[in-house]
Simulated assay, not measured.
Amino acid sequence: MLTCHLLLCVYIVTFLMGVPANILAFWTFCLKVRRKATPIDILLLNLTISDLIFLALLPFKMKEAFDNMVWLLPFPLCPFTGFLFYVTIYNSTLLLTAVSVERYLGVAYPLRYSVYRRPRYAAVASVIFWAVTSLNLSVVYIMPYAQWRNVAGSDNNSSALPPTTCYLNFTTEELNILLPFRLELFLVLFCIPFFICCFCYVNFILILSRLPNISRRRRLRAIGLALGTLIVFAVCFGPYNVSHLVGYVRSDSEQWRDVALLSSTFNACLDPFIFYFSSAAVRSMLSRCVRNIMAKLHILRCGGAPH
């Protein structure tokens, strides 16, 4: 019961904070891509789209947590929402990795990289990331239907009711399939991207610290952004992926997986900070929005003041 309340609270906070911030970022990157696209704009736009899809699915997860993890919605929504929910999480790890590679190449090989720096390459990479995560997470879509078939088969009843939970309470046979699959996710979609991010950002920081023709303020902001992104990557995606490894070693589905997933959920609120420091267009758009809001509040205040 306490876990469900915690899940519900984090889902609500993430939704309320993440939706407006990501809509603002989405609108900004759309305008920027239409005017003059750069590879990092394409990558950040896809990261924003991934976050918005994730946030759109949170109401279903809120309903599940409100009902104490009992799935009372139409059952076809269970595999559909679960599949997209996890695809967007792992898609974010790949996109953040691509952003780290783009930044590293830009400072390590500025002249050589400028020759091959084309937005279409970032677009192709984004499509590949969506395809890779979708193929890897296809088990999440298939497993709920397999559980339903197992229930029907055990009861010798083709019209058996679907499971009362969504992607929970696995049998030993189902765990024999899921645990190696989760280990593969841990190794391929978390460890490899994380090591690439570490390599790129550590070298990015070392190179920036040696550059003489860059102001101290810009250098510190770039280094802070690199360290912040790396910390966000580890804190947001680390706990849940570690649960895959622990579950595989212990041959069980850990009960604390849902709590570990909360840090990945909250990532949708933290990505806009990365957008803000990564893109001057986002900073400009946010400043313009704040000025417009302050101007309207000033007009309302002056209009309501006694003459």
Rank of each mutant, 00 (worst) to 15 (best):
T3M: 08
H5K: 13
L16D: 09
N22E: 10
R35D: 12
A37Y: 06
P39I: 01
D41W: 09
I42K: 01
L43V: 04
S50R: 11
K63V: 07
F66I: 02
F66S: 05
D67Y: 11
M69K: 07
Y86C: 02
V87Y: 03
V87K: 06
L96C: 05
R103P: 00
Y109S: 08
R118K: 12
A125V: 01
V127R: 05
I128C: 10
V132G: 10
N136C: 09
L137Q: 13
L137P: 05
M143E: 14
P144Y: 04
W148N: 08
N156A: 06
A160G: 05
P162H: 07
P163E: 05
N169R: 02
T171Y: 06
F186W: 11
L206R: 13
I207P: 03
I223H: 07
I231P: 02
F233C: 09
C236G: 05
P239H: 01
S243H: 03
L245D: 06
L245I: 06
V246P: 02
E254G: 02
Q255P: 13
R257D: 15
A260T: 15
L261D: 00
F273G: 15
F275E: 00
S279M: 13
V282T: 04
V282R: 03
V290A: 14
L297W: 12
G303I: 00
A305T: 08
